[in-house]
Design a protein around this nucleic acid. Structure first.
Lengths: 213, 213, 213, 213
DNA sequence: CATGAATGAGGATTCATTCAT
DNA sequence: GATGAATGAATCCTCATTCAT
């Protein structure tokens, strides 16, 4: 999940720590707003207000409205990256994979609004920013690919790279599914139950994959 | 996947068959446009033009721009419903499930634009329309629930309803994932390969689910 | 109240009696509608519907939307003219004036909607049509001028033409006032009471006018 | 003519004195325009231009086009209120009434455009705003009721409340009549002459009212 | 004669962005 | 650095009018 080419959102303000503070305010305000009415229906005035300052000030820290969306998306990945980074025990056991999944699902649940926004508004980003977001996506997939590769029981036929890729995708997607479909999944599962059930299903499938042939 | 309370998009035109024709034109034009620039960036004038007539005429067949989005969403489900309806062989075998998945994935691949639009713009619908779309979603899930229930090998411990629900959700979500992530999945898999791999993984997991305990 | 230069509303229909019928329908429908929402807020579609036929048909009997307004205004004056024509007893007494006022007020009360419309929408007419309406107004004033002139008690100093004109205007205006201010006048007066009180006040003032000097 | 519940026209601008300034500009521009083409035919762009700024700016000071009309109506009453307030000498003589009438008629003559607009476009206001305007109307009537009550010569039978109300209405209406009918009245009377003649007629009638019984 | 589908100019309103204070 | 008033392009939607059937 290496972070490269972070796109720079231009500012006319010099004080770096102030920039950081204001951006946190912008992101916070924007997330609340975007969740409620979506990126397009939220006005810059509202974003500024929700962030706690005037439009004039908002525009001291961003160049265009789209920047706000990018800021939000970027922030999510930073968070994800940071959180997942601390997970891997490098024990190379199935337990590690289970743990990673659990943490990932937890993370998503705690940032449901952010994730929902990101996946629904991504296409409103410029090609450049969209590309950056896609890269982050791939980073998450390869994070899980790595763990899977390391934890597969050494005995038996190894999974092919493509199979590992598929499973990693599954994990990432099913995590996102919790964000998008919480409204219905919740009726039957708590996050914990959902996590366990998905994990069981996934690992079970994964382990028996080679035998099926 | 029973269809209930279809929301009526008001028209000031009386000729039913003309309405049908024009709406097909609207949907066709809108899908092309929405895919390209998203619902919000597409103007009503563009929609009309893309449909092949004037805004005036467009507004004879819809009430608001949102109606166009609803028309698109509704059309997708009608298509899905119709296509899937012809699938089930009622053989009650695993083969039936495999077949259903295959057809569903095929269907999604053939309507990728429409699906992408629907999932990204859903929140721009009115509460009422959104509810209707959600219902359709649930319809698809229960379609697969039904097939799964019927095809599980009779021997062995039966899956619980919640487990069946989870697997059905998996299928629906992984189908959608093909639409959203085709850009990356495609690099490694053709649709056929993706379908096979996913099916194998899923069935494998499902079948061994009870033994794991 | 001589009627001159009636403006012709062009028609593409030949049958005279049909034209008459359709126009009555148009006027009837329009009055109802205009009262409710005003000339500008009423659409031609609504007018047609309210008249009982399609817009296509409506436009067979008028050239523009304004024609409808003119039709309504013209109709009112025709009615007023016809009704007042039968009033004058030519007795040349104060009783005649009283009677004329009473009938005029009655007439207005029975056509309140039409009058209200006419006075509020007049300026939406073309210069030409507006001029025609103004002429009709003057016709009404001179109708009363005539009666006043004839009924003044021969003894005493005669009223000047300007004074007669003023009184005639008073009558016309107070009649209209009943239409515009019925919402408040009604709380204290029935039409009959209002008529009597106004008449008393007016005649009283008129009669004593010369003595005041 | 107590002023209650002034309806608030929402603004997104905070500087109160700027609001006041801009509103005066809006009212000024609007009156000119409305007089010329009526409320409905005047576009918001024209209003803005006539006021001296862009539509964007116009909409910083109003919410809807109707607000402009309300602003105009409200402004008229404020003017009337202020002007009439300074009139009453509280001498309780007929002279006071005469003076009040004279001032009122003068006021109307100086605001002919505004009055004409108000009476012709009132029905385009929302129920709420219309109600407010009606209230102001009543305020004017009771202003004159008060003066009449105080100035009637103490000898002789007193006028009933209903009669006073009627006379007050007369005054208000005949003032308005000068605005609506200036086009014809002017041919025979200057404002001064009209005022005198009307006053004479009215007072004459009023004074002799009781004797007539 | 009657119908109603088609048209598109026109109008109200919004909102991202700028810039003087 | 912060503010918020000003701007006007852009957008949704309406509706008078026409014309083919």
């Amino acid at each position: 999940m290496a972070q490269k080419n972070k796109i720079v959102v231009q500012t006319s303000v010099k004080d770096e720590s102030l920039i950081e503070l204001r951006r946190q305010q912008i992101i916070g305000g924007a997330v609340k707003l975007f969740k409620e009415k979506g990126f397009h229906r939220a006005t810059t005035r509202e974003i500024a207000k929700s962030a706690g300052f005037s439009i004039g000030t908002l525009y001291e820290y961003i160049r265009t409205k789209e920047d706000v969306l990018y800021l939000v998306c970027d922030h999510i990945y930073d968070e994800v990256k940071q959180q997942l980074a601390g997970i891997t025990t490098h024990s190379g056991t199935l337990g590690e994979l289970k743990h990673a999944i659990k943490q990932y699902f937890k993370l998503i649940d705690s940032m449901i609004d952010e994730f929902t926004i990101m996946y629904q508004e991504t296409k409103s980003l410029s090609k450049e920013a969209m590309h950056y977001v896609f890269e982050k996506e791939l980073g998450m997939v390869s994070f899980f690919e790595q763990i899977i590769k390391n934890c597969m029981p050494s005995g038996g036929k190894a999974l092919t790279d493509d199979e590992i890729f598929l499973v990693a995708n599954q994990i990432v997607v099913q995590g996102q599914a919790w964000a998008f479909r919480k409204w219905t999944l919740q009726k039957r599962y708590t996050l914990e139950e959902y996590t366990n059930a998905q994990t069981k299903l996934l690992l079970s499938g994964m382990i028996h994959l080679q035998e099926e042939e």
